[in-house]
């Protein structure tokens, strides 16, 4: 097996405020090889962004990470400032959800990309860096790139801006791209274009991609493997097929059943189908008790009983479909009942 581009072991992230320290992410592990895409799925507050930021050591004030993070052979948690600077941008780059706020309002698009180039290799001249910017804008499909480099972020549409952000992230050909909800703010048609572009560039560059999303639709069309987060913990991990066809965690199955599908009504003969909603609202790790964080919303907790409320389940190995890799689920139930599995 080749060395993975990204390896995370038992990552915990905690926030300290007012003398109180609380975990918001706990015991996350993942492994991602070059050329592959791992989707991190979860609802708001589940810790997706914090996880992505921890990998780049870009945590906000007051946050600290424990565990082990290796990116392209470099230990990120023990790296010093200089090493980090070298890693950021060239080993690992990031695309943000809100492309407007991810770009400086005071610099034109070309300056952003040129800056990325020169931070990575100071020997490149300004002119050469801007030339690279033009090339890169062309590569991500921005029409009239020679003209576009001189535009400012606010003069671009949302889709164009996200293309520019992608150009900026990929200009140094990082081994790992962390894309934090890269299409959430975009129209469906634009969303599809951006996803296609990311997939295409990933293949061309052979890079690994950590795709953060709350949308199973996006995940289904882009991921190889999926990590489902609930309240800062890993609920389920597996290949896309295992997660979609044989979910082993009630939350995963519930999320799938709650996600509308465009083809859902074709097979019902016109009778209106309803989505099966998960009762209640998502919690965060801070508010979760000692047991399974999903227990208050889980329809199967009754079947298990007391254990769900007092003991947090650890990820255990689950059966995989043929060709599937590792499949883990953190649930006290060994098997989901069939009705749960067939979501609709």
């Amino acid at each position: 097996m080749p060395d993975p581009v990204l390896q995370v072991e038992d990552l915990c992230v905690s926030f300290t405020s007012g003398g109180v320290t609380a975990d918001v992410v706990r015991d996350l592990s993942m492994r991602l090889d070059g050329g592959r895409t791992l989707a991190v799925v979860g609802e708001s507050g589940s810790g997706k962004t914090i996880t992505g930021r921890a990998i780049m050591r870009l945590l906000p004030r007051g946050a600290s990470a424990r565990g082990r993070i290796v990116v392209a052979g470099r230990e990120m948690l023990s790296a010093d400032e200089r090493e980090l600077r070298r890693a950021r941008g060239s080993d690992v780059a990031m695309v943000f959800q809100d492309s407007m706020s991810a770009l400086s309002p005071y610099l034109d698009i070309g300056a952003h990309i040129a800056q990325a180039v020169r931070l990575h290799d100071p020997s490149v001249t300004r002119r050469a860096a801007r030339a690279r910017a033009v090339e890169m804008l062309d590569r991500v499909g921005i029409p009239g790139p020679a003209d576009a480099v001189r535009r400012f972020p606010h003069e671009f549409s949302g889709g164009m801006r996200q293309r520019a952000v992608i150009a900026m992230a990929l200009v140094n050909r990082p081994a790992l791209l962390i894309a934090d909800e890269p299409t959430t703010a975009l129209d469906v048609t634009v969303q599809a274009q951006i996803l296609a572009l990311l997939r295409e560039l990933q293949q061309e560059y052979g890079m690994a991609m950590l795709l953060i999303s709350h949308d199973f639709g996006v995940v289904g069309s882009a991921a190889d493997d999926v990590l489902v987060l609930y309240a800062g913990r890993q609920a389920e991990y597996g290949s896309l097929r295992d997660i979609f066809d044989h979910p082993a965690h009630p939350y995963t199955a519930g999320l799938r059943a709650a996600t509308p599908r465009l083809d859902a009504r074709l097979d019902t003969g016109g009778e209106r189908t309803r989505l099966r909603a998960i009762p209640g609202a998502p919690t965060s790790l801070r508010d979760a008790g000692p047991g399974c964080a999903f227990a208050p919303r889980c329809g199967l907790a009754d079947q298990v009983g007391e254990r769900c409320v007092v003991e947090a389940p650890l990820p255990t190995v689950r059966p995989t479909s043929e060709g599937g890799g590792l499949h883990l689920a953190a649930c006290h139930l060994d098997r989901l009942p069939a009705t749960q599995e067939v979501a609709r």
């Binding site: 609802e43 708001s44 709350h214 949308d215 199973f216 519930g254 999320l255 709650a258 996600t259 509308p260 209106r272 309803r274 989505l275 099966r276 909603a277 998960i278 009762p279 609202a281 998502p282 919303r297």
Partner: peptide
């Protein structure tokens, strides 16, 4: 959130 979305849609239906 996705898991809550369905609740509201069902309510409206």
């Amino acid at each position: 959130d996705v898991s809550v979305r369905a609740q509201i849609l069902n309510l409206l239906a």
